[in-house]
Design a protein around this nucleic acid. Sequence first.
DNA 1: GCCGTTTTCGGCCCGACTGTTTTCAGTCG
Length: 579
Amino acid sequence: MIAAVAELARNDQLAEQFDLLADLMELEGSDGFRISAYRRAAARIRETPTSVAQLALDGKAVKLQDIGKTIEAKIVEIVEDGEIHALTKRKLVVPAEVATFMRLPGLGPKTARRIWQELGITTVAALQAAAEAEQLRGHAGIGAGTEAKILTALAQPKATAGPQRALLGTTLPKLRAVVEVLREHPASVEVSLAGSARRMRETVRDLDIIATATDPKALVDYFCALRWVVDVAARGSTKATVVSHDGLRFDLRVVPPESYGNLLQHFTGSKDHNVALREDAVRRGFSVSEYSVTIVETGEEHSFATEEEVYRFLGYRWIAPELRENGGELAAARLDAKKRGELPDLVELADLRGDLHTHTTWSDGKDSLEDMLAAAKARGYAYYAICDHSQRLRGDLLKQQSEQIDALQELVRPLQILKGIEVNVRPDGTLDVSDEDLASRDWVVASVHSRFDHDATERVLAAMESPYVDCVGHLTNRRIGKRPPAPVDVERVIAKAAETGTFLELNSQPDRLDLSDVNARAAREAGVKVVIDSDGHQIGALDYVELGVGQARRAWLTKDDVLNTRTWKQIQKLQKQRA
DNA sequence: GCCGTTTTCGGCCCGACTGTTTTCAGTCG
């Protein structure tokens, strides 16, 4: 049933080659601007929601920012020959493990290069042995301190894999709790999250808090003395880093109130957003630092108490943190008419009118139907779909559950209970529930739950052909940090969704967040409506939709792009005509 | 290698910290 489709390299695979090429060139000591051009191109390719390989084949990749003729040609090389020719050549010159040297903390390309070229060390094992034997010290720029650093880094498990990131969903509540206690302290004035957590990135590493205070030292002292702090890694009069019992690092910076806006903007990032902002500013005669904006010609310095003022002074509308990834938000936010784009009015948590994917003890949920409904009602939802797994609801059980829902409906008004189901997509693409049973449900989510690599795309396409399938659940089945996304051809799925009128779920489970931001943005651009739901298996999990909304905002989704911002009546009009 | 509200050539973000050094290159965010 499945035609062999020539597999184009995915965007992340293209990006990886450009990043590696940049690393190897850096180790060779090539021109820094060419290197950063490759890195920028890699970042741009990763952020692009459509197939950049296809764009390059069509000669349209050059329309993307940071991609010119040369890089487009290199993308075509990957498509045709599997690898950038220059990368193939450089791999013969630079030993494979040398590239991992520069990923050790404290080591950079320059030092890694010296270790390789001046000392002839080409493997991690040899590097460790040399450091232990104190043979590195004395060579250009390396002393006992650097040797010790190398040994410490290599002693950590997976030292070369880069630092671990924590899930936003598990971290955000803790971070907010810290912000709350700091706000309650008498010396604090403003306290805000910053960094990737404020941008609602799906995973986070450093937890940044920015504050102003009447007595900075008092606030820092209080922060360092919080009872869950197990280690104070750094401490000054306006700044401290502490480690919690679960290994999270919290950074507090107390800044002068007159430049709180500049500093909050700076520490919210992303790095790419800030670099692009500053480059754009330079072209227009400004110099932007974390403390102020300087008008280069006059030397006049401007500090601002709010982010809104910083952006306005530089000629932009205020940009929501979730958009600050250098994904076109700067052009869209420009205030001057000629360049003005469309900064979207992003969807908000309060826009959600209901949850369209939840579970109960009828399948693998932890809380009962009654309890889940009470929680949904307490949230103020207008409708709420019970979507227990089809495997557990065979035959009479489905009818029994239906009767219980009918019995409860009057009790929970005005909440409207929807009789949903999460139907399993089998390895051959068929559904494991009869059409007759599906036809009896108000809302049908179809999900793949096994053999993720087996015909990942074709199974989903087949499921969407069913007139009863309203929505595809957790499309790629990734588990962040545990399981990579299945090799789903997201573009084809989105095209089929548009053609069949199927909706795509943005599953809000902290380790799923599937659709990813890039995929959700692609859905939006194709006009496919996205459903933000919790997939909640217990009462507390209903809160996860906040993470889904964050992800949706990162994907530039507006209220209109999200299906369940509508009333149930409006949604019914958008559902497929059932046969 | 890319890019353009000074430009198709000549630029390319900014500041802090660290370790190895006597004034700074390399690294980091």
